[in-house]
Simulated scan of single mutants.
Amino acid sequence: MKQQESRLVAELAARHWLRGDQIQAMAPAEHLDVDRYRVAGLDENGHPRPESGLERAADAVGWMIVEDGPVGYVAVRGGHPQCAAVGLYRAARFDHAWLVITSHRLAVLRLRDAQNTEEGKVDEIIEQARRERSLGGALRGIGKIVKTSATEFVRSARRPPLTERPQDAVFECAFEVPRQALHSIVRWKQPMVPEFEGGPRFVQVRFTDDSWARLKTDQAGLAALTGS
């Protein structure tokens, strides 16, 4: 299924996005199952911190401390919320996302299901909860997200995959930076977690602004992105 979807992404990229560029590597990209942010100005969930003097001072040192532990792995590290790693990680938060490297760019390309009317609602709920900045607002937001996600899960389970109905595949470039903003892509392994044949693999994407993000991919994706 991933190979078929990859071909669809490449076909739509050639039609709508490449503009003479050549795809050099592409791989499915997903969030870590349990993740944390270590970014100055953001809390562990990637939400903006309140602008207090004490928290700004803590950020100045705290963002540099990278910790992986039982409550989740650090997925994003950076010096400010606008760093490349934050943009990359947020772009890969939905299904059907691909990390793509061309001769001039690095991007996250997505296929959005035109029949999925709930996806935009999740973004609206998250933004509303951030604006409220209250426990009650956050809890209401979580409840709405769970309800929305459950509704869409039931609906999507009844639909054929996008590769069988390409007319519903809406192509999007969710993140893009010049190729020179990429420092390197290296393999990353979850500590104490064994790897199995056919199981997930992980990469750490490093940028020249000293930020990095970790993404889940598969074996073919790891090989394509790291050359190993």
Rank of each mutant, 00 (worst) to 15 (best):
V146N: 13
L99M: 07
K2W: 12
R206W: 02
S228Q: 14
T151M: 06
V74E: 13
A13C: 09
M26P: 04
S149T: 13
C173A: 12
T226W: 08
N45R: 14
I101C: 04
R110G: 00
I126P: 00
D95V: 03
E118K: 11
A75F: 04
Q3C: 07
R19Y: 09
A27Q: 02
W63Y: 15
A213E: 06
I125F: 15
G221F: 00
V74M: 14
R159K: 10
Q4C: 06
A40C: 08
A14S: 15
T208F: 04
W212L: 10
A91H: 02
L32K: 07
R206M: 07
P28S: 06
N45P: 00
G136N: 12
A174F: 03
A138R: 14
H16A: 11
S156Y: 02
G72I: 06
V100D: 01
L18I: 06
P48T: 11
T151S: 12
R49D: 11
V61L: 15
E11K: 14
G143P: 09
Y73F: 14
R133Q: 15
Y89A: 02
A169I: 02
E67S: 13
Q3H: 14
Q167G: 12
M64L: 13
V39T: 08
R206N: 10
P200Y: 03
F196V: 02
N116L: 05
G20A: 09
V205I: 12
V34G: 04
L88P: 05
K144I: 00
Q219P: 01
R105V: 00
P161W: 09
F171D: 08
A181V: 06
L139H: 06
L18M: 09
D209K: 04
G20H: 09
D35P: 02
R133L: 12
V39G: 05
H80C: 13
E164N: 05
I125A: 13
S184Q: 12
F207N: 08
L54T: 09
I126Q: 08
G79W: 03
R187P: 00
A150Y: 07
E51L: 14
V100Q: 01
E118M: 12
F175D: 09
V205E: 06
R140T: 08
E197F: 01
W212Y: 14
H31C: 06
G137C: 05
V71F: 11
G87R: 00
I142D: 09
P28E: 05
W17M: 07
E51P: 10
A114M: 06
T217W: 01
V186Y: 02
P191V: 03
A169Q: 04
K147W: 12
Q22A: 14
W188N: 02
R77L: 07
P160T: 05
A97V: 00
V186C: 06
Q4R: 15
V108K: 02
Q128K: 15
L215D: 04
I23C: 01
D218P: 04
T226Y: 08
R7C: 06
A97M: 05
W212R: 07
S103T: 15
A13S: 13
S103L: 01
Q190D: 01
P70K: 08
A13Q: 04
